[in-house]
Design a protein around this nucleic acid. Sequence first.
RNA 1: CGCGGGGUAGAGCAGUCUGGUAGCUCAUCGGGCUCAUAACCCGAAGGUCAUGUGGUUCAAAUCCCAUCCCCGCAA
Length: 308
Amino acid sequence: MKVIFLGTPDFGIPALQAIMEHHQLLACVCQPDKVGTRGRTEFCAVKKFALQHNIPLYQFEKVSRDGVQILKDLAPDIMVTAAYGQILSQEVIDIAPYGIINIHGSLLPELRGAAPIQYAVLLGLEKTGVTILNTVRKVDAGPTIVKKSLDILPFETNGQLFERLSVLGAEAVIEALDLIEKGQAVYTEQDEEQATFTGKITAEQERIDWSKSSTDIINLVRALNPSPIAWTTWQGKRLKIHELRPCDLQFDGVPGQVVLCTKKQLAVMCGDNKAVYITVLQAENSKCMPTTAFLCGKRIEVGTILGE
RNA sequence: CGCGGGGUAGAGCAGUCUGGUAGCUCAUCGGGCUCAUAACCCGAAGGUCAUGUGGUUCAAAUCCCAUCCCCGCAA
């Protein structure tokens, strides 16, 4: 089929690759370039891919306003979205005969919205997946075509899960496209009663609240890895926490208090009276490093309370 | 030209303000202690102090200038 792909970050790349191999990829659409860190602008993953493979690329400020006629002229059979980042108007949805299908990183109707994968980790779920659904005006609410699930590993980070789901998403989207092409696709309406919604992670959520349970804190840390990274403070400066592990030793202390600091280990008390080992961290202006390396140059005295 | 921090041994840091023999903690290697050890003790190796073989100076890791790279914040 003739496909137009709309997506921006890494998530859609495996799917994009697969579509390019199995179908006729007419063009890619991604968000406009953003000013990156420290003034530099960096192209998004989809733009890099398109440039590298000589695929026509469009970056509309608002696709619903600027892109309708252009995309219509390309005469696609179907359009595929994967973390594109713009809400689509009915006009856009109606461009292709088969409409638009979206690759969503959860088992819908659970975890609709902007950050399904992060929330799957944040909530400590043991299972999630990808859903291919038909796009309708309401976000992630259209009928589903293909669902694939997988188990979330015990200490898996958002980044690791993200990568696995993006590969699974590629399988699923090809399956869906084939079904649609053969006229065998079954569109299943979602159960609205079961729907849950995820908003974007806010800056306030990134700060670790040590009074929460060790499990919640560990889940937060892995949900925010590799970006934007959960943090606390030490000596008035930010201390990013990249990775935590549960600690079975018993200590007395208040939430946020450093209860163990040796040459190799650093443990902090949480709200449920359990401690966690900090295993990978990053001080301000410094690189991310294992705690063992950090402790070679600096020590945090036992009794210090983080996050104040 | 958004604001700021940094580049010193394989790793993480101190030393820079106040120029004057290159330090610390890990890791590595050798030896010792121990029932044993990721613990402890003794010793060794390992650095043109990011680059310009730039400027100032009797003397530069340290002061001045330029360049490259890394990082935090803000967007």
